[in-house]
Nucleic acid binder design. Structure first.
Length: 363
DNA sequence: CTGTGTGTTGAT
DNA sequence: TCAACACACAGG
């Protein structure tokens, strides 16, 4: 049971529908005795039910295990990602926090203190973003996350003695250029890729990440976004009173055209964590079922974005990786995520990035 | 035999 | 999304 870490079985359950409940299951349950039923007295076997009930955890993402230990799990795309088991409830909670930061970004809801602005947390953020989700999950499951983080800190001079200008440069280089924070994704609607030349930014995200100056409401502002290839896109961002919506207008249609975006595809927005809050935009073809290559598998991006691709071998599996050396959000990490399986490339694999296209319409 | 972590379901 | 619950079955 260690082959994959994600809840796969996408199809099985669907096709087989092994209508659970083995009626035959008369194999009576565990001999309920474990319970040291209250000392003698009346106590009918209420214990039957009471006793085997596991104590729930006060922490998010933490579940009790029969043996008294604690499991950690996080959900994404309707699927549970198991983060391992721990002796201490608190440890499990920490594992969840780490996964949450990696999966959902800096402002994810966590059990403890979230990453903030200090140098240490920036380093950790960098560390998280420079590893794929599956790698982070592996570390959590193997309880090696802390060691790996420390290791990386030494490499960047966080505190290791010796160091030198070499280490220092390396670190500056990294923090200056690469660290990106995921802001949000949006599955584009038919009208977002239609002739309207506008992309509606969900209010919740717009107000959180792209706040408009009170005075600018009418005109809006020009925002620059860099794509994976380093190309900069400038869009007009404003609020439409008529529809009470935040939108990207001028310039948007060109992006749609060049990327050949189709309804259902996902556009993603990131922002550099460093001083300069550079904005980034990326996209991926619509994904049917999401998965993470965990443990040892990683996915193949059934997408053929324009980005040139190179095959990389990791954990013994071939992966596609964009040339972006600094992998952060764009490359193998977040954007990847599909298992190489029975090729259920059905709709997502609309290769031929140019011609045909699915009728996503209603999902 | 011991436990993990998966299958499932029902509640937010 | 998320946790509760039961248990199949991987590992030793």
């Amino acid at each position: 049971m260690e082959s994959s870490c994600i809840e796969e079985s996408t199809s099985d359950s669907a096709s087989a529908t092994p209508s659970v409940s083995p009626a035959t299951n008369l194999t009576s349950p565990p001999p309920e005795n474990l319970c040291r039923v209250g000392s003698g007295s009346s106590v009918v076997l209420d214990s039957e039910a009471e006793s085997r009930k596991l104590p729930s955890s006060q922490y998010k993402g933490v579940v009790p295990q029969p043996n008294g230990r604690w499991g950690a799990q996080i959900y994404e795309k309707h699927q549970r990602v198991w983060l391992g088991t721990f002796n201490e409830e608190k440890e499990a909670a920490k594992a969840y926090d780490i996964a949450a930061q990696r999966f959902r970004g800096r402002d994810a809801v966590t059990n403890f203190k979230p990453l903030s602005d200090n140098e240490q947390d920036d380093i950790q953020s960098l560390f998280l973003n420079s590893h794929s989700k599956s790698e982070i999950v592996d570390m959590l499951r193997k309880h090696t996350y802390n060691d790996e983080l420390l290791q990386s800190q030494r490499n960047y001079g966080g505190g290791g003695g010796g160091g030198g200008s070499d280490e220092r440069n390396k670190r500056e280089e990294l923090s200056a250029a690469k660290a990106r924070e995921q802001l949000f994704d949006k599955a584009v609607t038919p009208s977002d890729v239609g002739k309207l030349n506008r992309l509606v930014i969900p209010k919740q995200h717009a107000e959180k990440h792209f706040p408009l100056q009170i005075g600018n409401n009418s005109k809006g502002v020009l925002l620059n976004f860099e794509d994976n290839g380093g190309k900069v896109w400038r869009f007009r961002y404003s609020y439409w009173n008529s529809s009470q919506s935040y939108v990207l207008t001028k310039g948007w249609s060109r992006f749609v055209k060049e990327k050949n975006l189709k309804a259902g595809d996902i556009v993603s927005f990131q922002r550099s964590t460093g001083d300069e809050k550079q904005l980034y935009i990326d996209w991926k073809a619509r994904m049917m079922s999401t998965g993470y290559g965990l443990g040892s598998l990683q996915m193949v991006q059934p997408v053929i974005s324009v980005h040139p691709v190179q095959v990389v071998r990791l954990f013994g599996v071939n992966l596609f990786k964009t040339p972006t050396v600094n992998s952060v959000v764009g490359s193998s990490s977040s954007w990847s995520g599909k298992r190489v399986r029975e090729m259920d490339f059905s709709s997502s694999l609309d290769l031929d990035c140019c011609k045909k296209h699915h009728v996503v319409g209603a999902l």
